[in-house]
Design a protein around this nucleic acid. Structure first.
Lengths: 165, 165
DNA sequence: TCCATATATTTTAAGCATAAAATGTTTGCG
DNA sequence: CGCAAACATTTTATGCTTAAAATATATGGA
């Protein structure tokens, strides 16, 4: 079997969010449920694969991914903004990654409220291995789309992102 | 202000998942991150609105929504499949909704392992109120798309859903 | 019948997520 | 300076979520 294909392995067989629909529901609701179905599907597969292959979680992977792009490190607050999660959440995940030796968290000399967080060499190596597989998994899940379709989807999702103005 | 517009109110200002990107990342990864950005954005707004206006959560709302479509009720296992969550999760949410009087959970005469779950009249009324607002919120978040765009997005997301075959 | 296996659900342990309160630090204004 | 307000982070309480183990029931074959 192609190693980039992630196995189905949940404890319950899954349908999708659109089972919620009524005949007369608004088109916007159908669109939202389909969007949710697609992203939950991919997210579930990624979570399972990260757990099986690296015994880690998506939040931890995302945390490392943000740091990998910025060798000088990021503050806790900046990480909270970039990861789109609460500050308390960042504190907890940072503590774990520090205890695992993947991340370094040190106070700034010029401002004793803030901490700079960066990858350790060990963290950088661990992330590199995970990122490679992560890309393979995603290509396995989305690579069947033609590049014209990808472009269209990117443009339309950008319209979604823009919001009602 | 238009009451269907949901306010920004998180404890941290938010960017989006695409801050994770490198220049040379694969198109599939960009697409996945944009998909995630869009659905997280909408989900965050819906969660906040449900909490503020009805003091409830998205999982509870989804649970009621599944039941509302099936007056005769659903078993715990069927709910687990339709909601795409684990059985343990369904047990926990069901227990809450029963204690709030929104849902009835009774054993089946012909199979003592299974339970049939259905809305109570109170639950049906509560859900109706929530569903109305829910639709307004979603139209507020997605209603700016033209119907041609919605059709295209639905078709492309269907392609995503189909998977690699 | 007996029993292994399958099925339906609940319980448990652990991690993620949030909002709100608490803590400690900095800034700027009177 | 003195102090209020803003800021950065952590702590706390609560709820969602999962996987895995436990419980209870049903089924089918020897």
């Amino acid at each position: 079997m192609d190693s980039t294909v992630i196995n189905e392995s949940g404890s319950a067989p899954r349908l999708n969010h659109e089972t919620r629909l009524h005949e007369d529901d608004h088109h916007s609701i159908k669109l939202w449920l389909r969007l949710l179905t697609c992203s939950s599907f991919i997210e579930t597969r990624l979570r399972g694969a990260l757990r099986e292959e690296f015994d880690t979680t998506l939040p931890r992977f995302d945390f490392l991914a943000q740091l990998e792009r910025v060798p000088e490190g990021l503050t806790m607050g900046e990480l909270s903004r970039r990861l789109m999660v609460s500050g308390g959440n960042v504190s907890g995940i940072a503590a774990q990654l520090v205890s695992e030796g993947l991340v370094d968290r040190s106070p700034l000399p010029d401002n004793r409220r803030t901490f700079m967080v960066k990858l350790t060499p060990k963290g950088r190596k661990a992330f590199a291995r995970m990122a490679l597989r992560h890309e393979q998994w995603i290509i396995g899940l989305l690579g069947h789309l033609e590049s014209r379709e990808v472009d269209q989807l990117m443009a339309l999702l950008d319209r979604v992102k823009q919001g009602p103005q």
